[in-house]
């Protein structure tokens, strides 16, 4: 293990209600600090539950989660969290909302950051939160999150209700934050394309479990897309997905031995990789070494 982990989970599980189903089960992963991490997975995979556990909003039903080296609640002032529906007090104005941030935080709070984020969006500080559009609300929520100068920023579907231009601006804002302060950013989305260009780390959550964890470059390099004759045996490798069409076999594998010279091989795109895992729930879990908890 190198450096501090931003988030570390071991055998983590969360069940809602005593007889409810498991939203997350048996999750183990480690997210090194300083990364920009995409949490992807289908709707209902457990992404929001994972982020809420990390934010200290939910108690795990089993297992453990450590955030910035301590229990999630202990790191409260160094962690920012923006929930999926961007809850804000509708009766307050933008300026009052920022004053709430100043009141509820310690002296890590940087009012100038909040004001800058809000001003960049042409928001009138006197407008009521109630009157804002979805994108404007997201901006205010991010202003609250960034002015805390967090070490860890947890964003649940941050871009969902933004138009492409606003999305671009917001992503720029976040990347600047990551670059300036070394903030670890964890963003969830069910649209991979939203995050692909900005993130260097990936957590694929599916069916309540972490299926892939690692640096995106390493993950891509560890997998090959192969085309080979239909009778090829792939037993020497870890097969994520294989399909035979006519006399042609196409597969996504994690090579464990040198590949035959007559196969056509290529590096998969991130989308191909993620989709292959999602289509094949039986495929083994993949974690790069530094992400093993």
């Amino acid at each position: 293990m190198t450096g501090t982990a931003a988030i570390e989970a071991a055998a983590l599980g969360k069940r809602f209600g005593r007889r409810g189903g498991w939203a997350l089960r048996d999750c183990a992963f480690r997210l090194p600090a300083g990364r920009v991490c995409a949490v992807v997975g289908p709707n209902g995979a457990g992404k929001s539950t994972l982020l809420a556990l990390a934010a200290g909003l939910l108690a795990p039903s089993e297992g453990e989660i450590t955030v910035l080296g301590g229990r999630p609640g202990a790191a409260r002032e160094r962690v920012s969290y923006v929930a999926q529906d961007k809850p804000l007090y509708p009766q307050l104005t933008v300026a009052e909302t920022l004053r709430m941030g100043a009141d509820l935080n310690t002296d890590r709070w940087d009012a100038s950051v909040a004001e800058r984020v809000v001003a960049d969006g042409d928001l009138n500080p006197k407008s009521n939160i109630r009157a804002l559009s979805g994108g404007q609300r997201t901006r205010v929520a991010l202003a609250l999150a960034l002015a805390k100068r967090p070490e860890l920023l947890l964003l649940d579907e941050p871009m969902a209700d933004l138009d492409p231009l606003a999305r671009h601006q917001m992503m720029g804002l976040l990347m600047a934050q990551a670059a300036e302060s070394g903030t670890t950013i964890v963003m969830s989305s069910h649209v991979l394309a939203e995050l692909e260009d900005s993130c260097d780390h990936l957590l694929l959550v599916d069916g309540g479990q972490v299926r892939i964890a690692g640096e995106i470059d390493e993950l891509l390099a560890a997998h090959r897309r192969v085309s080979a004759p239909a009778d090829t045996v792939l037993d020497a490798h870890t097969v994520v997905e294989s399909r035979t069409t006519g006399r042609q076999l196409t597969a996504l594998i994690r090579p464990l031995a040198p590949l035959a010279a007559d196969w056509q091989t290529g590096t998969p795109t991130l989308e191909e990789l993620v989709l292959s895992y999602l289509r094949n729930p039986q495929a083994p879990t993949t974690k790069t070494p530094e992400t093993v908890a």
Partner: peptide
């Protein structure tokens, strides 16, 4: 509305 959670993720 989730504003309680908003408060809990301040300090």
């Amino acid at each position: 509305s989730g504003t309680a959670q908003l408060a809990w993720t301040q300090a």
